Computed example of a mutant assay.
Amino acid sequence: MKKLIGTIVLSLSLSTASFADKINVFAASSTKLAMQEIIENFKSKNPNDEIIASYSATGKAYAQFTNGFQYDIFMAADTTYPNKIVSDKNAIAEPVVYAMGVVALYSNDKELIKKGIEALKDDKIKHISIANPKLAPYGVAATEILENYDLLDIVKNKIVLGDNIAQSVQFVDSGAAEIGLVAFSLIKTIKKEEEYVLVDPSKYKPMEQSFVLTKYAKEKPLATKFASFITSEESKKIFEKYGFGIK
């Protein structure tokens, strides 16, 4: 009898495993809070499937991908890198915009935030945190904002660069920088309203955050399934909840 039960359990385990699937997803740091909730919701409906998510700067992940790291879905903070993957013939579909990035001015000093972008001229500010524009689209946006407000030359010696936008938030949290230009999606749900102000979106190019199914997703139905979930109404509400714009 014990042998029979063991055989049945093994058979059921193998049967369950045969329906399980696993994919690797790169997601830009700005999406981390939203994506954690989206993945949790997806897994509640698909408990046998595994989504392995990695979060970092888009440029850094693109370099990893071109050096052979097998991301099945590449979720960037812009359209530039997904388009590169397509032009390199390393994608099986065109990029899809999943959310619009929003930039906020963030500080633990509420008096600075009351001044808005003009606060960056304040003498009490010694360090301004932004993401590295060579690696992160939010760093590019921050640079555009400073240029469009004619502030870049004034504050350039105060700028500290995060490897990704999450680190830029951490610099402000830790006091390493008094203020920062960061992703609204990383602070909306966990910071007080008086600690941030949204930057005029006309001061930076629209941040169409896009994903692409890479060549590694070709024979992985789970990749297509999860990609559809990312663009579902359920997921759009989650992105919006965390401060992203929705097209």
Rank of each mutant, 00 (worst) to 15 (best):
E50H: 05
T80E: 15
V172S: 02
E118M: 08
K110C: 00
K114R: 14
F74C: 05
N157S: 15
A63E: 15
E94Y: 08
I230Q: 05
A93G: 10
K121F: 07
K32R: 14
T66K: 14
N164Y: 13
G243F: 11
G6L: 15
N132T: 05
Y242S: 03
N132W: 09
V160A: 05
E233L: 05
G6Q: 13
A142S: 15
P47L: 10
K220Y: 10
E195P: 00
D150G: 04
A61F: 00
D72V: 02
F211Y: 12
D150K: 13
A104L: 11
D173W: 04
K225D: 09
I154H: 10
K121N: 15
N108W: 02
Y196R: 03
T31G: 02
N108Q: 14
V140D: 04
A99C: 09
F184P: 00
E118A: 14
K126N: 12
A136L: 06
A177T: 02
P221R: 08
A77E: 13
N90E: 14
N46I: 00
L151H: 06
K121R: 15
G243T: 09
E234D: 14
S129M: 05
V182L: 12
Q64E: 14
F239C: 05
L181W: 08
A166V: 02
P47K: 11
A141I: 01
T80F: 15
I125H: 01
F239Q: 00
T143R: 13
K2F: 15
V86C: 00
I179D: 03
S185T: 04
E195G: 01
F239K: 01
K89T: 10
Q36T: 05
N46M: 01
Y204M: 08
S18C: 05
A183D: 12
E50L: 06
T79E: 14
I117H: 09
V212R: 08
Y149K: 05
S44H: 12
I92T: 09
I8E: 11
V103F: 03
P206E: 12
A177M: 05
S15I: 13
K237C: 08
I187R: 10
S13I: 12
M75C: 12
L213D: 04
F226G: 10
V103Q: 11
L120W: 07
A28T: 10
E118R: 08
N48E: 12
S235R: 01
K45Q: 15
A183T: 07
A142T: 03
L33H: 07
S15V: 11
V172A: 05
S56P: 00
K203M: 04
N148E: 07
G116V: 08
V102R: 03
L213F: 09
